Computed example of a mutant assay.
Amino acid sequence: MADDGLLTGYEKEDAELWLWDDLPELHMEVGYRINRLLHFERSKYQEISVAETAAFGRMLVLDGVPQVTEKDGYIYNEMISHIGLLTHPAPQHVAMIGGGDCGPSREAVKYPGIKQIDVVEIDPRVTTVSRMWFNPNQTLEDDPRITISHEDGALWIQKQQERIDVLLVDRSDPYGPAAVLYSRAFYKHIYTSLSYDGVAVFQSGSPFFDMKGLKRTRERLRALFPIVRTYLTTIPSFPGGIWSFTVASKRHDPLTASFDKLPLETRYINASIAKASFELPENIRAALR
């Protein structure tokens, strides 16, 4: 185990260990008290740690930034996955960029009609560490539909031409290597990778702290797709708690999707929540207009 002083974001305060998520663009920090540091390593791409937090249980941390937690990670995974999987009436080929913890793929395997699930994660150590600390069962390993590719998603998507029915883009914040996943060129590659009636879902950030980023995402998608819809959910461990996702579709409108076909094995989302998530507060509606 590395010395605590070498870990990005971790600080000793008296006898307590804290993880501070520094958000300079928001002029704030978010602190999480750490009970134990369970795992630490430096991969080819980043610093990877797993911490047992006082409030959210185990937390996956990349370069000092929280990614997913034991207590509320299922909310994020269900909300980024099922909306798109049900917007398309009969998806057969599903792909995910990012999501090395394989959370979205665990939701996709609940649909028997899906024939192929591609998971593209640039860092193989994220997948290994996530399986070790978050997903010890063999569900994913035993499902022949899943293929995990450890390569750059921005390059991988350029090789896909009208193949994908539903694409889930589980991207990190728009800084550093992930910045390309917010570019106009990337959105164009997304469009050409989708089948004639394909659907894509993007993590699109906090509508409270980063409305500018959400508006930019929608603007760039609306230049390509005839249908673009934003929906919200509440994720307690995320800054501000309220988070947005944006659907871009070539043909199918999520507002008319059959959410009653939702699988029974969910912990957060149900048909009513899926429909209501598109009902935006007036301040957000006004800002997006």
Rank of each mutant, 00 (worst) to 15 (best):
D142G: 02
L6G: 05
F208W: 10
D197E: 14
R171L: 11
E29C: 08
Y268R: 12
G9I: 01
M96W: 14
G240D: 05
E52S: 13
F202H: 12
A90S: 14
E11A: 10
P254Y: 09
P89T: 04
A108N: 11
E107C: 04
R184Y: 06
G213R: 05
T53S: 07
Q116K: 13
V94D: 05
W133L: 03
H39W: 04
C102Y: 12
V247H: 06
N135E: 09
T246Q: 02
R285G: 13
H150S: 08
E52I: 00
D22L: 11
W20P: 09
Q67W: 10
A287T: 09
R58A: 03
F134I: 08
E29A: 15
A179W: 07
T87L: 09
T217M: 14
R218M: 07
D118F: 04
P91V: 02
R58S: 01
L23F: 00
D152E: 09
V109F: 01
I117Y: 06
L26E: 04
L181C: 02
D22F: 06
Y76V: 00
P66S: 06
E107A: 00
K115P: 04
E47T: 02
L262E: 13
S105L: 15
V61A: 08
D101R: 02
R285K: 11
H27Y: 13
I146V: 07
S249Q: 02
S183R: 04
Q116E: 13
V119G: 09
A2R: 00
A185M: 09
T127I: 04
A90N: 11
R145D: 14
Y76A: 03
I48Y: 12
G84K: 02
M96A: 10
R33I: 00
M59S: 00
E13D: 11
K110R: 06
A248N: 06
V228Y: 01
F225V: 07
D143K: 05
V201L: 09
R36V: 01
G198A: 01
D253V: 10
P89N: 08
T147F: 08
I34P: 05
E78D: 07
P144H: 15
P91S: 04
G98W: 07
V247P: 05
S81Y: 01
T127H: 06
D142R: 01
D165L: 04
K12R: 14
Y268M: 14
L60T: 05
M1P: 09
R106I: 11
R220C: 10
G113N: 13
G57H: 03
S244N: 09
K275L: 14
R222H: 08
A276W: 00
K110I: 08
S49R: 12
E13K: 12
Y111C: 03
R42Q: 06
S149T: 09
D142S: 01
R106A: 10
H39I: 05
L38M: 11
Q161D: 15
V180L: 02
K44Q: 10
P263S: 13
Q67M: 11
D72I: 09
R285H: 13
K110C: 03
G98L: 04
T147E: 08
S149G: 09
I269T: 14
R285E: 12
Y191M: 09
A257I: 07
P112K: 05
P104W: 10
